[in-house]
Design a binder for these strands. Structure first.
Lengths: 342, 342
DNA sequence: CTGTTAGCGCGTTCAA
DNA sequence: TTGAACGCGCTAACAG
């Protein structure tokens, strides 16, 4: 079996010119039924596979996309990545994955790496760079889809216009409202919130949605029950909960900016001899796989990773087909899933 | 800012030929200091970036690799992927990721997809296909690294020879021996094991290592304490544990083929009013992120995902540099990490 | 040290 | 309906 059989080998064996063989296989131009059969037969026999690098150079289209995430080893991204790959794979695309760690330098580096490889589009989940800088790096026409962690009400026209990109986000307000309503329905109205580090997305936004939801429910927010977690991980969540629970007055429920923080709260509650959910209700955000594996199982707000991935893939392919269509923004619903902790 | 500035644009502006510009930038051939400076200045000014697709076609080397996993959304693979990407990224490579779901059809499809894109190498973590078939698809010379879940004693010469590939695996026997010794050191010698579905890797292999370790420790295996989990997930682990714990005699400890099964055992123990670890010790395998988040924290055997990734990347790059070197096999140590459950 | 020529493997002209 | 020629952007081989 020879190393690489090319189009001209197929053409030669079929007794036609390379261009005819190409047209026979691609159907780009009509070819007599007879030669079409023969070319296909030979191609099959030789197990011919077009060289996509050469085709990419010629067509200026590689059928390749780039997916930039902070860290593929994080709990949330792999699900998004899988959904994207499933969707684009059905159309013959494959994806590069690059990690940026939320670092602007790395973002530039990875974006250049991808642009140099002539990817047909980019999906980014973090945006440490300014919109101008991103466009500068990927070039003015590269199809670009942003995963904005939080969805700010109506689409953010500022970002969209500056970036000339499509956006996919989640309607965090919806899930948070459901969470507050769920608690109120069970008679608990003393609700606290643990956000992420100050100034960080998505924690800040979710805290604001929490305030909105409380106001809408006619509940007042006790500022002593608002805490910041120094990070989006279990340990910092534990510490934040510990601080909050050692105050003179305690809430009966705590909403958290993400699941890892919430799991930290679960541990802090246990160490403080507080039964969950009878003495303290805990609600997370994201529904990472671990949420189902802790005890009690974590009641949380589903961040629909797969749907986000599908929406990203769909937006990107729409953009690739219609480069001049108006930019779109998709907001995916979030919903509470009640498990054991609230 | 023009859309794409190519090498000949740079060359033209610098007043030299394209090949000289190429040599100036790459340093492949000596160039006068003066022109070198000028070419670099122009390239900088125009923000020139070489088109890696064209270079790939010319050099027959795309600086691209393929990583095939069963499902990137699974708990274990993302860590491996990240390590691989970090390591190869330092050498200017980027990686495609493809999901096979352990399905031979999908494996063929993805492999062809990758070969058509002229990747420089392939790292595979599942091998649903026969060795012959894999080589058939990727071609006789493609550098290939296999992640074999379980490491069978000395390298498996059968697979290596047939596949002409490098292998990276883990020394499961080591960690399992540590686990048995750990339990015996605490005075518990009634040890059971829950493996995966019959005939599945890595469960079967780990069960065998367990038998070896018990024999080596002078302990006898009670066949009534061996159970099979119908899958590698929490629910099937729970069911298996439930079956095992409802038998007339119970073990004082259960080793599990993976962490998800072990977490299911934890739940079954709770529902059976068995305190962990005083009445029942539980030990998992893999050390997935969730292991630290359950209660009690899971004592488990660390499957060093990052090291596996690094070893894969190193093996692949070694092979790309030395295509004719003898095939190598790397066995990574596994160790017990004692947490709360044993 | 530099320029010219010639492809890498395709797909798309343009002319028969 | 087909073939010949050309070029995608880059680099290796061969002159000068």
């Amino acid at each position: 079996m020879s190393l690489e059989v090319g189009l001209k080998e197929v053409a030669f064996r079929a007794g036609v010119s390379p261009s005819t063989a190409s047209n026979a296989l691609s159907g780009a131009r009509p070819v007599s039924e007879q030669t079409r059969k023969r070319v296909f037969a030979i191609a099959e026999e030789l197990n011919y596979r077009p060289n996509l690098v050469a085709r990419g150079l010629r067509r200026q289209e590689t059928r390749t996309i780039a997916l930039l995430v902070a860290d593929i080893a994080n709990p949330y991204y792999p699900a998004v990545a899988r959904a994207i790959q499933d969707r684009i794979g059905a159309h013959g695309y494959v994806s590069f994955i690059g990690n940026t760690d939320g670092d602007p330098k790395a973002e530039v580096r990875v974006l250049e790496e991808m642009r140099a490889r002539s990817v047909d589009g980019v999906i980014m989940s973090t945006m440490a760079l300014s919109p101008e800088r991103i466009r500068n790096v990927v070039g003015p026409t590269m199809p670009l889809v942003l995963i904005t962690g939080e969805w700010v009400e109506t689409p953010n026209p500022h970002v969209v216009r500056k970036l000339r990109a499509d956006e996919v986000g989640t309607d965090d307000a919806m899930g948070i409202k459901e969470a507050v309503d769920h608690l109120r329905g069970r008679g608990v109205t003393d609700i606290g919130f643990i956000s992420g580090p100050a100034g960080s997305v998505p924690g800040d936004g979710r805290l604001e949605r929490f305030r909105d939801a409380m106001a809408e429910a006619g509940l007042s927010v006790n500022e002593a029950w608002i805490e910041q977690s120094a990070g989006y991980v279990l340990e910092t969540g534990y510490d934040a909960a510990d601080r909050l629970l050692s105050r003179p007055s305690r809430p009966k429920a705590i909403l958290c900016a993400n699941d890892l923080i919430a799991i930290g709260v679960l541990e802090a509650a246990r160490d403080n001899k507080l039964d969950v959910p009878t003495e303290l209700s805990v609600i997370g955000f994201d529904d990472i796989p671990t949420a189902k594996h802790v005890s009690p199982r974590l009641t949380t707000i589903i961040n629909p990773a797969r749907l986000v991935g599908y929406a990203c893939a769909d937006a990107l392919m729409r953009r690739m087909e219609h480069p001049d269509a108006p930019f779109e923004h998709t907001a995916l619903a979030t919903h509470l899933v009640a498990r054991g902790s609230a």
